[in-house]
Amino acid sequence: MTQALIYALTGAVLFMLGVRATLLRESLLPRLLALNICGAGVFLIFVSLAYRGDSLPVDPVPHALVLTGLVVAISATALALALNRRLREMADE
């Protein structure tokens, strides 16, 4: 299970790197990248929980959760970018 642990720990690091950048950065785009990387970290933890070695069948539940999470994440990203764009337009007007 060492492989699973390596990736799970990587997920933890990615999550906290994302949190750190969300707290430190101020403009929208870097914060959005940070939140997406946060999400990637959580997803990586889920998927490493599903991995049970190369010979055993994986646990499909976390995979499905991550697929759901991915679609939610891109929806939120699209909404944030649309809002940001409208704000830019208003600043120009």
């Binding site: 492989q3 699973a4 990736y7 785009l29 959005l32 990248l33 997406n36 990637a40 997803f43 998927v47 490493s48 599903a50 991995y51 190369d54 994986v58 995979h63 991550v66 697929l67 991915l70 679609v71 994440a73 891109i74 990203t77 699209a78 970018l81 940001n84 764009r85």
Partner: peptide, 25 residues
């Protein structure tokens, strides 16, 4: 990690479409 469904989705959505959205942004 034996998650080919996710590999496809990530390439298409995570990297592909998010990337496209961010680039036009």
């Amino acid at each position: 990690l034996l998650a080919p469904d996710l590999a496809l989705a990530e390439a298409a959505i995570g990297a592909g479409l998010s990337g496209a959205l961010l680039l036009v942004a």
